[in-house]
Design a binder for these strands. Structure first.
Lengths: 254, 254
DNA sequence: GTTTGACATTGACGCAGCGTCAAGGTGTAC
DNA sequence: GTACACCTTGACGCTGCGTCAATGTCAAAC
């Protein structure tokens, strides 16, 4: 069976312009040119076009497709088997994305909440490997033991850099709090700097900051025994001190 | 949680350039600009970006995404439900494509054959509806009864125009054959024109034409009872006449 | 025989969606 | 202080075609 541009275009679902372009860049030349200059495609060109479209579907550039297919060691069947695998990967990712959309629907209806990280699941391409194999592992090896990970803080929201920044900020906060406590003055410069650091640290975990919530959290550090024990561990009275400093910082007394 | 360009980029798996571009075309503006001119994104921008990427995944242009999302009647949840459906469609198409690749593998190993039409299954996007609902139905209503459809001719290879052309050619062939038969001369002008028409008709079904095969087919018209009955239906002896004409035309006597 | 209409051809320009420099300001860590 | 990683705004370039425009071809219809 022989095809003109339009016939082949309709068969394959592409435009004649696309076929002209493929001829131009030398990725798919017609079998022959007839006496009137028309492009005539044959059976092998049909098969070649199919391969090209397979690769295109996988997102490869035409340049690379050309390179691959003109490689003398190119093995059609082998390539197809690889295609199949890649397509199965793509299917998995699509299923992830569908799951994501379903979660987002549930979240928009208030039936559940999503971390920012979860919101982009299935939208990133290859990062899934890197993220989970390399990144995820390293992170867990480095920081896996920290108790803060077991708290209600949603660290999954963060990229590695953010994680490092927030832990650094946490260290700074602890040091500043310890020093400030020694001054005994919750209104003093050091204590107010501590309160500011606490706010910064908090902003990593809260989508919206407001003074009332900040002061409320500070009060909870005193009321909730788990928090109180944590802050008072080295220097008893620290939880109250931090609360006072924050109440002064925010200008909010409950 | 607040994000700078790079942090948001890493979260969503896109480049900072992309975020700048989205700002430039007004599809995703940062929540605010800090004192140094840095773009700062907030929670609602994260959600908005997610929506944008959902739409982008479906292949919409940024222009249309902007249009849709800035529409005051835009309903997020409703859009998500539509997203889900489209993604399921996409998944179906992907499964089709995978099936196609598997078939192609089988075909390359000689375990089966594929029509040209089948080779592009799953690569065309929306045509599946149109083709099967409209086109396929009409065709079948028009030509469904023709016995030629039940023969070994792979009509599925053709687009509608090709189908029409080949049936027209078939009509022409039958008429010419009938007239030529009346002359009684297989070497005559009419008979030779008939043989030529037969060749043309044949070229729609064979990927490669050669005289020997043509003559062989002509012989089969006489030897195979099904074909003989078909051609001799109106004028007995037509099958032999056509064979003789073709043998003269091709210069091949078996 | 010519005219119509659907096909084909080769340019050429344009567009989306960024990638990729360049030249410079910012901010924090050692 | 200085190194370094981040941010900014241009500006140019690239891919993969869409979309004219101007022109030639061919089968069918008048």
């Amino acid at each position: 069976m022989e095809y003109t541009v339009q016939k082949l275009g309709k068969l394959a679902g592409i435009s004649t312009r696309t076929l002209r372009y493929y001829d131009e860049i030398g990725i798919l030349k017609p079998a022959r040119i007839n006496s009137s200059g028309y492009r005539i495609y044959g059976q092998s060109e049909v098969n070649c076009l199919q391969q090209i479209l397979f690769y295109r579907e996988l997102g490869l550039s035409l340049e690379k497709i050309k390179e691959i297919m003109s490689d003398p060691s190119f093995n059609g069947t082998e390539a197809l088997i690889k295609h199949r695998e890649k397509l199965l990967d793509k299917k998995k990712q699509l299923e992830l994305l569908i799951e994501n959309v379903e979660k987002t629907i549930a979240s928009s209806e208030g039936r559940m909440t999503m971390t920012d990280q979860e919101k982009f699941e299935g939208l990133k391409q290859k990062l899934i490997d890197d993220n989970e194999k390399q990144y995820g592992k390293e992170i867990r090896e480095k920081y896996g033991e920290e108790t803060v990970n077991q708290s209600n803080i949603q660290l999954k929201n963060m990229t590695q850099e953010q994680y490092e920044e927030v832990t650094r900020l946490g260290d700074e906060l602890r040091a500043a709090l310890s020093e400030a406590f020694k001054t005994g003055d919750p209104a003093g410069e050091l204590a107010q700097k501590t309160a500011d650091l606490h706010k910064q640290w908090l902003c990593f975990h809260w989508s919206e900051y407001n003074k009332e919530a900040h002061a409320g959290l500070a009060q909870m550090y005193v009321d909730d025994d788990r928090f109180k024990q944590h802050y008072d561990k080295d220097q008893p009275g620290t939880a109250e001190f931090l609360r006072d400093a924050i109440q002064i910082y925010t200008g909010t007394k409950l």
